[in-house]
Computed example of a mutant assay.
Amino acid sequence: MKLFSTRNINTLIAAIAGLVLLVFLLAYSETGTPPTFTSTSKAKQRPDFYLTNSHTRQYDEAGLLDFIMNSETLEHNPKADTVSLKMPYFQVFQAGQATWEIHALTGTVYDGGNKVDLEQRVEIINENKQSSLKTPQLFIYPNAKLANTDKPVTLRNNNGFTRAIGMKANLTSKNIALLDQVRGQYEPTAVPENAP
């Protein structure tokens, strides 16, 4: 006796066809309309407004310059209430004096400007241009004047460099804490012969 006789194959095909028909009928719901299949990827939301060559200035309670944000383009996404930035540039001030410059290729502003996610070639430079920090991603909190990342960072100054994974920075006190796998290379500054 054959395991797959013509009768068994026909019965199997009829059973599969019946199952497919049952699934199809159940999927049509009571309205009689075919089911809609939604894509798991988010469709790009059209901005409700955009700016080119955007320049923003924020002042502190004393009326002194606190923060500058410039970007090549700025687009507002109304659904997520976010702002996308192209070529963002930030300048942070303390008592009206510039203390930090921060720039990147792209950025996203969240929470009404309280959080900014900078990505791609992010660089922070201190006011005297003596040291800089580079990372692929950085979160800055303009009102709190804090910054952090869990990505690799490279800190450079005149004496050498330090690499680490993760960083937290207080932009007011100018304290930078490197979090993990910290290693570096330094060359001591030459001391003059007549120094005490």
Rank of each mutant, 00 (worst) to 15 (best):
I124Y: 04
G113D: 00
R163T: 10
N158M: 09
N114G: 11
T162I: 15
G166T: 03
E123H: 03
A169P: 00
A169C: 02
P152V: 07
M167L: 14
N126L: 08
N128K: 15
N143Q: 15
G166N: 03
A147T: 04
K168I: 08
A147D: 05
L155K: 02
E119C: 06
G166L: 02
I140V: 15
K129I: 08
T162L: 10
L155H: 07
T149M: 06
A144D: 15
G160N: 07
D117V: 08
D150L: 12
Y141V: 01
E119Q: 14
N114S: 14
A147N: 01
N158S: 13
T149H: 04
V153S: 01
S132H: 10
E127W: 13
R156S: 09
K134F: 08
E123L: 07
N126K: 11
K168W: 07
E123S: 08
P136W: 03
D117P: 04
S131R: 12
V153Y: 00
N148F: 10
T154L: 10
I124W: 05
G166K: 01
T108S: 04
N114P: 06
Q130K: 15
I165E: 14
Q137Y: 08
D150E: 12
N143M: 13
I125Q: 11
G112N: 14
I140C: 01
I165Y: 06
P152Y: 04
V153N: 01
Q130R: 13
N157C: 05
P152I: 07
K168D: 14
E127R: 13
T108C: 04
N148D: 15
A164N: 08
G166C: 02
